[in-house]
Structure formats: C-alpha cells, structure tokens
Design a protein around this nucleic acid. Structure first.
Lengths: 328, 328
DNA sequence: TATTAGCACTTGAGAAATATTAGTGCTAAT
DNA sequence: ATTAGCACTAATATTTCTCAAGTGCTAATA
C-alpha cells in the first residue's frame, strides 16, 4: 500500500511526464510538495523498488513504468469534467439529427483524433447482428449484373458478377426465392441456408442453377460483416516516442492489417477499458483505450490508440461522452 | 548534344545511383569505360555544367539532377522486356476470368507496390461516363430507408436516410418517376435534372414532396463519382530518401487528401508519362509515372509514385504491361 | 524516526579537436 | 585528347572535454 505522499509523488511524476515527455527529477516534485529534494529522492527510490517508476539511465530522473501507469489509472486518476471547448465541438456533431450511427462515430472520433493527436478506431457491428433484409439484382448489360444485399441494420454490400448464357428471368426467380425463404437470417448463416434450403429448390425449378447458385454463394461468402475504420493514423508521426522509421513501419503495418486489428481491438466489455503497453495485443509501446457501444441494436467497439504517455483523463472522458451520446 | 561517351557516363551514373542511393564517383565509372578517372572527371564537370548532374558537396561524387533524369528517360532508357518473374505473378491475376476491372487494377497494382516498394494509385472513372441505371429504396424500419443508386458501369452507391412521417408509397412513387424519366442521365447532371424535371412533377403528385425531393437531391449530390485507391503507402517508409518524419508527414498528408490527389493525379494522356520532381504536382522529391486506361468504356488513371531515384525502366514496363492487359 | 544538507559520482548531450576517407579540380606531362 | 599526380575539400567518424541534470549515500538535525 502506498502512503498518501507516495501517491502524490507518483501522480505528479506521471502527469508531468505526460505533459513534457522527459524524465522527471526530484527538484520539480519538491517544488510542489513541501519537503526537500532528498526526501523525494528517497521516496522515488522506494517507488522504483515497487516497480512503479523507472530510470532511463543511472542518473536520470524517473519515468513511469507500465505498472506505474496501471496504478495511476486504477487508483489516482479521478473522473474529470469534459473541457468546455471539447464538449462544444462534439455537441455540434451530435446535435445534427440527420446522421446515422456510423457517421456520428466516425465524425466524432475524427474530431478526437484531431484534438488529441492520437489515432482512433471504429469497429463496426458483428455479423450475427446483421440479418438479411433484401437482395436485389440490377443487370448492367447482357453478361454483367450487380447483386445488392441489404441487411436489417441498413448495411449494404454490392458486387458485380459476370454470368454468361444465363437468362435474367432465371436469376430473378432465384432472387425471389431467396427473398421469400431466407430473409431474416443472420448474415453469417446465410451461406449454409443457401446451400441446404435454396440449392435443392433451384436445382428443380431453375435452369443453369449450378452457375447461379455459385454466384450467390460467392457473394455472401465475401460479405464483410465487420468493418473497421482507422482515423488519424498519421498522428502517430507527431508523437515523440515514435520518431524512428522502423517503429512507424511496424505500427502502421499492424494498423493496416484488418483481420489482426479486428481480432485485437474488438472489445466485449461495456466499461471504458485501458490496455497499457504489453496489456494490449497491438504494440508494447502504445496504450489502447476502448469500449463497446450499443445503439439501436447495433454494436461495435470504439478505441483510441496513443503512446503509453497518453492523456488518460482526457481520453477516458471523451470516450465516455461519445459512448453516452451514441447510446441515446 | 551529348557525345556518345557522355551519354554512357550519364547513364551509368543514373543506373548506379538508382541501385546504391549514394553519389557516384569517377573511379566507379572508369572501371566500366576504358579510360582514366581524370577523363571521367572532366566529362562529369561538363555534364554538371550542362545541368544534368549535381554534387551534394564540393568533393562529393555526382548525383543526377532532375534534368539528368529527364534526359535519361527521354533518350537513354530503352524499352525492356518484362522480367519473367514479374510477368508470371501478374499473369496469375490477369488469367483469372472472374474479376471486374477495378479488381484487376487494384490487385495488379498492389502486386507492383509489393514488388517495387513504391506506392501505386488507381483513380476510377470520371463522372461524365457514369450514367444513372437504376435507383431503388429498401425500407429498414418505419423511419429509415436505404437509397441505392446504380450506374451503367456497375458502380453502386448507397445511403441510409431518415424520413419521418413520410409514407413509403409516396417515396416509391418518386422512385418510379426518377426511374422512368431520368435513367440514362450522366451522374453529374442528375442533380439539375432532378431540380428542373422531377421537382415540378412530384410537387403536383406526391405528398411531402419537399422532404422527399431534398432527400434524393442530397443523395445524388454526395455521389462520389471519382474514386481513388492508394496502395502501398507504407512503402514510402522504406525509401532512404524519405527517412525523416517531417517529410513523411508531408507526403502522407498529400496522399490522404482525396480531392488534391484527384486533381493532381488524373492523367489525360494515353502514353506512359513520367513526371520527375517539380514536374509533378504532388511533391518535389518524388517521381510520378502514370497513364490513362480505357476498358469497356470505363476510364481512369493508374500511377506509381516513388523517389526520383526510381527504377524507371521497370516501372514503365510494368505499367505498359498492366495497361495492355486491362485494355483487352 | 523522518527529514534534510551536502557532496561525490554518473550519464547524456553538446562542442571542439582530430583523423580518415572518398571524392574533387587543376596543372603539367604524355 | 588523355592521364598521372597532387593539393584541396567536406562529410563522417572518433575522441576528448565540458556542462547540466540528476542520482545515492552519509552524517547532521528536528
């Protein structure tokens, strides 16, 4: 258990380090607390002993360790009011009645990225929530047509397909069958329903059924039911901790890898969750703050990625505010 | 006019510099040509006088100037055969009969980016070529519906809109009117046709016409008829000339600016065009090699962006090959 | 017992001194 | 026209030195 003074010191070191990005020495601290630098040094040595602080070299000031940040976010950080200016800018977005959820999310997170110089991520709803609403086809010319799939959440996916020697009539028959029989099926189950319920029927009634079946099967298989949106990636270039090219290559590579990101970022917990350094699966040098959101049956994850030396209070408050506004 | 030997020297310096990325000295050259380094030095001084070469400092070897590169691509570079391995990989993509043009383009340019470590760009067709093919709506719930717009090239755009207190019937009436009256109109003229041909009619026959009209007007206004796809942006991080963060911020910023890119990259000429340094509108430190493609009435631009010290022969050959395959 | 003044010590960062190296241009000889 | 030879230049790397910022430890103090 830390003494009150130790907590004060730890907190000061962390907030100073977040501000200035360089090791904090005992002199700076002793100006804030009423005691000598020697006392602070003793305390700092103890805090280092406990694994909460680190040195960059023998005679440097202290920087927080991951454990130190963890202690800070768990015990020392107190919920802050959203700063007036930030709130005002966000309100402008949320006051617009016209937008759909994905727009509120991407616009507000774009704003957060701009304000904080961190990177933000919106991860769209999971497949099981999307049910097939309607499928339609638009012929483009004699051999090409567009297949359009709409889900009950309003997600639309389309694909141009090439079908030679197949009459439009037969295709329309199939479309009608699909619309009659499997509308309402969760998207991730459509493929199998298609195989076991539609295939046998069109096998009897539809000419060229093999080709048509394959086409639709393909369309649904490719239906990407998770979608990811990374905003403000270039902000990473502004952070002093990421000032070498290899590190940037590394992180950009990870952020661009959709599948990995979906696996690593998806959050199942409704709180604002903080993953510091090794605690996240993205990169040891970053912190990820994220939360799951629900809105009109749609759900997904919003996340902010920044250096471990991140403005935790501000980001948490901002995310809370967005979550709150999105969910009502 | 350059002498034969001068051309040989210039060519050698450029190809060596492209390979090694550091200034080329007279010793390296005189191993290739049968004469002493002093002779080469005299020639090099002349070439510098002519503005074809530069020095990085008084006693450094030479690097090509932009004018030097220009002379190289105009006079010294001779058309090369596509290297067997490159061709094989590209063939795999083009042998696939199933894809649509945009897929061939994005896949082959992705491959080129991987092979060359440059960045590539596909710029989709211009608006005037896209004509309205069909518009349809899918209601999601009582207040939300999806508007889907399909063009004759098979481009699909959709938007979720919020319409309170408007009956679906009235909306369908409007959709039918649009499909009857303005199908076939180039997308960039739809807005005005909507205003002058549709608005007056629905004003008479449709209830809530104000709201409905505005909705559709909005949808078409937002229809993005040019689309841009930047592939392999992270490759820029691999180029030694872009090894400082500010430069990277700068270039990434430009590449992310859709509108600026569309303006700067769109190519109207059917040849393979090379824009070195100041010749392009993107950045003084890069070369852009690009060409316009046509395929089944669709047209657009494909471009490769790399350092001025780019492997010109290879990129030109690759682009020619892709253009050829796309256009048949 | 907790705090503090004092001091020796460590390290990184920056500046200045130095050597090395890869190149040049110019001159004079071939 | 070509080339050997040499003085010269600038970047780069290495070393040395100084400075500032900080530490840990000891002994004195409240």
């Amino acid at each position: 258990m830390l003494s009150e003074r130790q907590e004060k010191i730890l907190k000061l070191i962390i907030t100073e380090y977040i501000k200035l990005a360089r090791p904090v020495g005992s002199n700076l601290i002793c100006k804030e607390l009423k005691c000598s630098s020697a006392t602070i040094r003793n305390e700092m040595a103890d805090l280092e002993e406990l694994g909460l602080l680190e040195k960059t070299h023998t005679s440097s000031g202290r920087i927080p360790s991951e454990k130190g940040y963890r202690y800070y976010v768990d015990h020392l950080m107190k919920p802050k009011e959203l700063n007036g200016e930030d709130m005002l800018k966000l309100q402008i977005i949320f006051n617009n009645q016209q937008l759909e959820i994905s727009d509120y999310l991407s616009e507000s997170l774009k704003l957060i990225s701009d304000m904080t110089s961190y990177t933000s991520i919106v991860l769209g709803g999971t497949s099981h929530d999307n049910k097939l609403k309607e499928i339609s086809v638009v012929p483009i010319d004699s051999e090409n047509l567009i297949v359009i799939v709409v889900t009950d959440k309003g997600h639309v996916e389309n694909k141009k397909v090439y079908l030679q020697n197949v009459s439009l009539e037969e295709i329309k028959k199939t479309v009608d069958l699909i619309n009659d029989l499997i509308v309402g099926t969760p998207i991730d189950e459509v493929s199998s329903k298609l195989e076991f319920e539609i295939k046998p029927i069109i096998g009897r009634y539809v000419k060229e059924h093999e080709m048509i079946y394959n086409t639709f099967y393909q369309v649904f298989k490719e239906f990407s039911n998770k979608n990811i949106n990374v905003v403000g990636k270039n902000n990473i270039l502004k952070q002093p901790e990421f000032n070498n090219i290899e590190k940037i290559q590394d992180i950009f590579g990870k952020l661009d890898n959709k599948e990995e990101m979906i696996n690593n970022i998806t959050e199942e917990n409704n709180d604002i969750n903080i993953y510091i350094g090794k605690e996240n699966h993205l990169d040891d040098d970053v912190t990820v703050i994220k939360t799951k959101y629900h809105s009109k049956g749609e759900e997904g994850t919003i996340a902010i990625v920044g250096p471990k030396r991140m403005d935790y209070d501000r980001v948490v408050t901002l995310l809370e505010y967005i979550k709150e506004n999105i969910e009502k």
